[in-house]
């Protein structure tokens, strides 16, 4: 503790160099260890998801039911939404219209699908 107090008051160039290198090393060490932990967490989740995807294949599954994508309300049956909530779809259409500089009622959207 006495040494640390002394460091806080006056510190030589050589000591400063050691503290700087040590500090940079500690930051790297801390984040590398965190990287390992996060990578393990990610692997655990991705492998868990893959298992969950494979399981229905092995089980004697009932006859596959092809579900039509949900039709967006108020779209006169034109626009099909694939795993996209209507609110998000509305926002996306507004952004596209804005970027293209055209009014929304002059554009025709056929389907919106989330890229996974």
């Amino acid at each position: 503790m006495m040494m640390l107090t002394a460091l806080a008051e006056k510190i030589g160039i050589a000591d400063a160099g050691i503290v700087a290198l040590l500090g940079y090393g500690v930051v790297f060490l801390g984040l590398i260890l965190l990287l390992i932990v996060v990578a393990i967490l990610g692997k655990a989740f991705t492998s868990g998801n893959k298992k969950a995807e494979k399981e229905p294949e092995s089980a004697p599954a009932p006859a596959p039911v092809v579900q039509e994508p949900q039709l967006a309300p108020g779209s006169a049956g034109q626009l099909k939404l694939h795993d996209v909530p209507p609110k998000t779809a509305a926002m996306l259409m507004a952004i596209v219209a804005d970027k293209m500089g055209k009014p929304l009622n002059e554009l025709r959207f056929i389907s919106i699908k989330e890229v996974k």
């Binding site: 160039i13 400063a16 290198l21 940079y24 930051v27 984040l31 590398i32 965190l34 996060v38």
Partner: peptide, 24 residues
Amino acid sequence: NPKSLLLGAAAQLGVFAAFFGAVA
């Protein structure tokens, strides 16, 4: 993309370089 953490660490170079410069 956990490898990003390494870039976050690398970008702390200025902290310790400026510390050294301030002591100097």
